[in-house]
Design a protein around this nucleic acid. Structure first.
Lengths: 337, 337
DNA sequence: ATACCTCCTGAAAAGCTTTTCAAATTTAAT
DNA sequence: ATTAAATTTGAAAAGCTTTTCAGGAGGTAT
């Protein structure tokens, strides 16, 4: 069943059928209703492939995530928002996950291009040389989520990692903590990981404090890595810190478990602050003090900007930075009181 | 840049170019290398839309989730597995989330059909009359994930909800618990929710125990709803239960928090068992005893079966039921000891 | 020398739309 | 009644592939 069949059944030309389907030009009320009747009866669905081929537009956005466990990077909210914005504007979403594999990533970009996706949303993990070439030459607009890529000035919607990390650290310092442990997350180039670290260090410097290298650990987003980080700190020559900044809530949860296992009370002995405000953060024991990032805003900014680029034909190199809030719960003790 | 341009540049016909691109017939070594050179130089990418239009095959699978917060239903692992299987077999994935809206769902099925998706993976929440019509007439194979739909005998990959719930309950009973609270999840038709409930009730009956209606609560997957369920049980005329079966780990986490807030020790005063084995389950306080479901198996079964249906042209009505394991941690006390 | 094969290549059709352009018809205006 | 304008419709092109079919070139066997 194609448009030709419908045309024949309605006794009109295919142009006319096309016109009533897409409401793209005036057609006589009589013929219109006749065509619509056939449309109904046959339950005809236009072949979108042919349309897209003709119009050189697919109304599809490719979303490429470089992520492992989707739960751990708390991307769900952003992704949901993106889906909503796209759908509200008549766009579909083609989702792919590279699982950190460079070959996969190249392949996915190739497929997006072959499928003639109208634009790409890219949740990058790390930028390598191959990315430079791909992104530079990609024939459709791209918007980054969560990371920026200064080398190519690609538009992005990101969190204010530097200031958020700084504020989290200042919060600890203002609560009387001076010896502070750090659990970092993977960092490359100008990635979130290094921004958070700089924010942490900046805060320390502002208060004339020196980071203890034996307290600077690195996690991989997993809960276990937060646990392991604490175990590592156990060996610090200066002893355990009085507070720990985990750059991810899940790592904070791992850290809290490790602290308890090793006989430390949280927050009495060691305070912990997280980052993200995942949905369990309010239900841990103790409830986790953390930075709440505005994941909805990031999703909205990214999706809207991409659609703008597509519709306007211009590619404005904008970086949208979303706000954050420090959520005070009970995992940080006030040593000044 | 299209195949015609490449043909002109290489001094051959488009048929020949097509042949070297797809390696679909013998072509002289000389001409082949000549074409390949042009292919390289121009970085030509075939327009897949045209190909798909021609071949009546899109190599794309539509994945429709009826879900709210993706984190809460712990679908990430299954989704990742599905992605992998599809990619390994040369298929792409078009993802959509209906957010429980019936209109959205109808719309998404329409779009999948218009986009000529080769098959559909459907993570349904609830089946309504509209589903019956859509699913009955859908022109491509569909495989359900997580739910079965007996009315139409659609193939599905599911968890063994009944037996898992029964075993969880038996575990509690065997540990000396007789007064057991239940935190259910939304249930319709033959949904997971009712299966788990039946498993729970079946176990009770087997031991000649009667479920206390004032201890049968209903959650909505959210952590808070697990919390609220415990608050509800506080009013039970028979007093608090000695154990609670939460049909979702996240609800279990909410329940544990509520119990602690109300002064109950877990597991000394009240034991809690969960369902899912989410990634924080091993890091809660106390670590959560729960049912680990095989999410990878479900993803694999569903994806493989769908591809089988597509490739064979047959639509076998198979129900794949995946295994589960009871993970013993520390949230259940043994009252018999 | 003829017939027959194999190998390789190109022309053209098919897949299904949308859109442009021109023609036909109707309506309005003078 | 005639011309101009507006309305409605259809034919055909364009969008880009893949695939079928047929033909030409070269080789081999009889």
């Amino acid at each position: 069943m194609n448009i030709k069949d419908v045309a024949k059944m309605a006794g009109v030309s295919i142009s006319t059928v096309s016109r009533v389907i897409n409401n793209t030009a005036k057609v006589n009320e009589d013929t219109r209703s006749r065509v619509e009747k056939v449309l109904q009866e046959t339950n005809y669905r236009p072949n979108v492939l042919a349309r897209e081929l003709q119009q050189k537009k697919t109304n599809t956005i490719g979303v490429l995530m470089a992520a492992g466990d989707l739960n751990l990077i708390s991307i769900s909210e952003t992704l949901n928002t993106v889906t909503d914005v796209l759908r509200d504007n008549g766009y579909n979403m083609m989702l792919a996950n590279s699982r950190f594999s460079m070959e996969e990533e190249i392949d996915i970009f190739r497929i997006f291009q072959e499928k003639r996706v109208d634009g790409v949303l890219f949740l990058a993990h790390e930028f390598k040389e191959e990315h430079y070439n791909i992104l530079k030459n990609y024939p459709a607009p791209i918007v980054l989520i969560g990371q920026e890529y200064k080398r190519l000035d690609i538009p992005a919607a990101i969190h204010d990692d530097f200031h958020a990390a700084r504020d989290a650290t200042v919060y600890l310092i203002e609560h009387g903590h001076e010896r502070i442990g750090y659990i970092g997350c993977p960092s490359h180039d100008e990635a979130t990981g290094v921004k958070r670290k700089r924010g942490f260090e900046f805060a320390l410097e502002s208060y004339n404090l020196l980071p203890d290298p034996s307290l600077m650990t690195l996690g991989d987003f997993s809960i276990q890595s937060g646990y392991d980080a604490i175990i590592e700190m156990l060996d610090s020559p200066g002893g355990m810190p009085s507070a720990v900044f985990a750059t991810t809530d899940y790592m904070a949860i791992g850290a809290i478990k490790a602290l308890k296992d090793k006989g430390y009370k949280v927050p009495e002995d060691v305070s912990v602050i997280g980052f993200d405000d995942v949905n369990v953060a309010g239900f841990t024991d103790p409830p986790l003090t953390t930075i709440r990032t505005d994941k909805v805003a990031v999703g909205k900014n990214a999706a809207h900007h991409l659609l703008d680029c597509i519709q306007s034909g211009r590619e404005d190199k904008v970086i949208y930075t979303s706000s954050y809030t420090l959520i005070e719960r009970e995992s940080v003790a006030n040593k000044k009181a």
